[in-house]
Design a protein around this nucleic acid. Structure first.
Lengths: 248, 248
DNA sequence: GCAACCCACTTATATAGACATGTGTTATCT
DNA sequence: AGATAACACATGTCTATATAAGTGGGTTGC
């Protein structure tokens, strides 16, 4: 009763498409408790009547809210309200130096060599132990200031001389945009908190044991065979992750 | 030319809806370079002809890929292929102890008191400096094992005795599902790497200075006025974040 | 009692067209 | 030449209807 007052935090009032308007209204009903979490919403046809739109338009609104985790439909039964959990949050990596890292960041190649895959490398790249792999170490600097230290193992394929093209990458943008090779990026990322070993600490000009974020990556071919395994050690105070909970 | 071979990593071959089939084909063309990043796709009507579907079905496929960052449409001009960047990745918080934290996690209230807002608290909760706020400290244990230490400041509103209901929360599930109050969760999350101060270290039974992830949260009312500010200190070795790059 | 069947209602997918709106080119008028 | 109008074509929204497919209740027939 009483103070519902439409709210309308963003200005979806007048000129936005119907499916967004409806999605906003439904989201509001879920978050306000008008449709309590776990309860069944009115059926599609009833909502069509209420909002005076065609089924497809309502469907679009519902699909949108389903993708946001606010609703969940069960065919033949109904559409149910859901309360998103903390674990649903998706974090976005955020550089304190502006919009992730822009073009002014520079990559310097510290070392490039051939190495024999040890047990760990062999497992990650799915090659045999002792097989030859390329081992790279890079330093990413932001404004003359080292911010990330990068180690990477790449499968060695004499037919595809990917090393040369990669060694010349000095723009971070080009590097990040293209994954590790010139191909389309596909891979898995894992992020943890670590403290710097002496080698990385020295490269980053930090005291040994300093805090860092470790962004481990496995880049893959289109058929998902791994091509590259490595990790960035990022000075912890320069990076954070952000997410928000709830609608918009 | 030659070895395109359809691939079809997931089995979208036979029985999946048309819009998914088409989305998969288009995603494949973008990632394989058949539609190079930045280039314009054939127009909607042409693609409708090719796939022999109606405009709405094609639209659904395109909307899906737009939401995945693989395409981007410009009204009146065309639809363009995009190469997702590393910065686009969305990380999901991942507990090493299974599926985020399940019901067996327990919350123990260590301390609850009234406090006067200092400068920082006042700014985060948008109250005046010196205003009364509730100060809570909690310990989350997983299997008799302390894993997260939680500090939280809550705006004090005598009309709404939210404290009592919160103090009784012992199931982590109930806690995380409901944000901090009984209401629908809305808020902002920030995650950084820190090292434990002596108080938190003692609570977590870790050495002082041990690695931790700091999950800071601001929970808000539906009108976005802040209700609660606080942070979890999570033992670093027990949590990580994961993301993947590229389609599915 | 119980299985089989039917029917009403649900979500979900797809269609074929209409319309709105933005962009860029081409032709026309001054 | 330069502004303007007309046009073709693009994306994007919406409708009204059709159909598929899953759920659950009720009836019928044995």
């Amino acid at each position: 009763m009483s103070s519902v007052a439409s709210s309308d935090g963003g200005n979806l009032g007048t000129k936005s498409p119907a499916y967004l308007r409806i999605a906003a209204v439904l989201a509001d009903r879920v978050t306000s408790g008008a449709y309590p979490a776990g309860s069944r919403l009115p059926s599609g046809s009833r909502l069509c009547d209420e909002f005076d739109v065609s089924p497809m338009t309502l469907r679009r609104a519902i699909n949108l809210l389903e993708s946001q985790g606010l609703l969940s439909g069960v065919k033949g039964k109904g559409t149910y309200a859901r309360s998103p959990e903390l674990g649903d949050s998706r974090f976005k990596l955020d550089s304190l130096a502006g919009d992730w890292l822009d073009e002014s960041a520079e990559i310097r190649l510290l070392a490039a060599s051939m190495a024999k895959a040890d047990e760990k490398v062999a497992a990650m790249l799915r090659v045999g132990i002792g097989d030859r792999v390329v081992y790279l170490r890079r330093l990413v600097s932001y404004q003359e200031d080292p911010v990330m230290y990068h180690r990477e193992y790449i499968t060695y394929d004499p037919r595809r001389p990917l090393v040369e093209s990669q060694l010349q990458l000095t723009s971070l943008h080009a590097f990040l945009e293209s994954g590790t090779a010139r191909r389309f990026p596909r891979g898995e990322l894992t992020l943890t908190a670590v403290s710097l070993d002496s080698e990385s600490a020295q490269a980053l000009m930090q005291p040994e044991g300093a805090l860092a974020l470790r962004l481990e990556h496995v880049f893959q071919e289109r058929d998902r065979t791994p091509v590259s395994w490595g990790w960035f050690l990022m000075r912890a105070e320069l990076f954070r992750l952000r997410a928000h909970l709830g609608p918009e």
